[in-house]
Design a protein around this nucleic acid. Structure first.
Length: 472
RNA sequence: GUCCCCAUCGUCUAGUCUGGCCUAGGACGCUGGCCUUUCAAGCCGGCAACACGGGUUCAAAUCCCGUUGGGGACACCA
């Protein structure tokens, strides 16, 4: 185990979204590659916005994509004493002070400043008051440095310099006794021994506010790396407006977790011209050096393609296992339960080239699971006609006489009928396909027959013949 | 408004640090064809980009400055 310690620290104010997963992924990848420690911390200090449901959704999402954590999940609301203790230390050392300005006053001043075109920062009016024992509601503010510069050696962006004059005195303890974000992160990152803070670049301007707090508290300052944001097609920050943003929605649509991770990794990171990575690949090849500095647009089309690649090249056993719940959803689950793993693997092998999601695959699987054939509109009318009855009948008879119902023997029998009837493959294949599946687009015919088995193949063929006769 | 970040095909990106091998490569999508029992998959081809303007240099997508554009931050949210 190396000394690399990283964390993912979401706030439970909503579901786990795609951007959050990518941040978690990059941290996790770093930890797994360096044999370090990945910590999950729930930042729930906003009483009014945090919910238990959101925490559950975050944990469920993390588990679904397979980003397992080594420590935690910690909840900041269970660590209140720590923040208060540290806040008091700062107060004792005169690095923090009580502020009795009310939220309403501050809001009013902010608006006024903004209207005048000034910076909407706190003017520091309580700084010099030296209030020791506030009577009413009071918040604790951190004395930010006002001179000099804070320089960040960002792992991704490079050197970033801020003039400390842009800093104001941040509230670290609310009047309700809860710490604010910028303070609780510092205390936790310090106490948890975080070595690398890898987070979204929306936090870049928080960094010069946090560094002085580490110093004031006497803790070492971790390394920082700020990841570019993920945008929607309109270049605006990814949000509900851009469709599915909850990671679990992708699970429900039939995406593979490894495909999701593959796609997300490629959003902002690259390894030469490679596109498809397994999770172990990512762990081996990931590097902060190859992370992009600029934001990336989330492209659902490419995600779909990546998913198709993983369905197509992934372990068919695994795919079939993931497919089962989708068969349930498609209403053919009861049949599926009774099916052997071997048969399921055959099914996946037959369908995987034409399925981009597990939901697609489940829909394509229906003809092999349902009792009755459901004809797609127009298919029977077009292909099951009197003209094909003779050939179809001969085929059924030959199939019935087969000692072995296998791909090779079926194909041989099929060719015989073709010869006898003077037909081309396509002329007979489509009617058979429709008779067997009700559809005009399916896997190869002989795979279909193997999947169906002798009984169902013959039964459906004969039903098809009757239907073709009746069409006359 | 102030501060910070960013800038290669529509999108994701290689190339930028360590200028020349770049008449800018790959991928998604779109598109033409091949293969073919359907549909896919696969294979071959096409369209398509260094934001702009100044420098520096024998030479700039690559270095510097500016402009423009995009994004982020400026809460008793995280």
């Amino acid at each position: 185990m190396s000394d690399v310690r990283v964390r993912f620290a979401p706030s439970p104010t909503g579901y786990l979204h795609v951007g959050g997963v990518r941040t978690a992924l990059f941290n996790w990848l770093l930890a797994r590659q360096q044999k370090g420690t990945f910590i999950l911390r729930i930042e729930d200090t906003d009483q009014s916005r945090s919910t238990e449901e959101a925490i559950d959704a975050i944990l469920e999402g993390m588990r679904w994509v397979g980003l397992d954590w080594d420590e935690g999940p910690f909840r900041q609301t269970e660590r209140m004493d720590l923040y208060r203790q540290h806040a008091m230390t700062l107060l004792d050392h005169k690095q923090a002070y009580w502020c009795v300005c009310t939220a309403e006053e501050l809001e009013a001043r902010r608006k006024e400043a903004q209207a005048k075109g000034l910076s909407p920062t706190y003017d520091g009016r309580c700084r010099a008051r030296g209030i020791m024992n506030p009577t009413g509601d009071a918040a604790l503010r951190f004395k930010a440095p006002q001179e000099g510069q804070t320089v960040i050696e960002d792992l991704i962006k490079g050197e970033v310099t801020f003039d400390n004059s842009v800093l104001d005195d941040l509230i670290i303890l609310r009047s309700n006794g809860y710490p604010t974000y910028n303070f609780s992160v510092v205390v936790d990152d310090a106490l948890m021994g975080i070595t690398h803070v890898i987070r979204g670049d929306d936090h870049l301007t928080n960094t010069p506010r946090q560094i002085p707090m580490f110093r004031a508290l006497g803790y070492p300052v971790p390394r920082f790396g700020h990841l570019p944001m993920i945008m929607g097609a309109d270049k605006a920050r990814l949000s509900k407006r851009h469709g599915a943003t909850s990671i679990l929605a992708y699970r429900d649509m039939g995406y593979l977790p490894e495909a999701m991770l593959n796609y997300l990794a490629r959003l902002g990171w690259s390894h030469g011209d490679e596109e498809i990575f397994t999770v172990p690949d990512l762990i081996k090849k990931f590097s902060l050096d190859q992370v992009q500095k600029s934001s990336a647009v989330f492209n659902p089309d490419k995600l779909l393609w990546v998913n198709a690649q993983h369905i197509q090249h992934g372990d068919p056993k695994r795919v079939s296992r993931l497919l089962r719940p989708f068969l349930d959803q498609a209403g053919v689950g009861t049949t599926a339960k009774a099916l052997s793993d071997d048969w399921m693997v055959k099914l996946v092998l037959a369908l995987r080239e034409r399925a981009k999601t597990l939901a697609d695959m489940a829909a394509a699987a229906a003809p092999y699971l349902a009792e009755e054939v459901t004809f797609e509109p127009g298919a029977a009318e077009k292909f099951l006609t009197p003209a094909i009855v003779t050939a179809l009948t001969k085929l059924a008879d030959r199939f019935a006489a087969l000692s072995e119902f296998s791909h090779a023997s079926l194909e041989q029998a099929f060719k015989h009928v073709l010869d006898e009837e003077g037909l081309k493959m396509g002329q007979l294949a489509q009617p058979v396909r429709v008779a067997l599946t009700g559809r005009t687009a399916t896997p190869g015919l002989f795979e279909v027959m193997e999947l169906l088995g002798r009984e169902r193949t013959l039964a459906r063929l004969r039903q098809g013949i009757e239907r073709a006769k009746a069409a006359g």
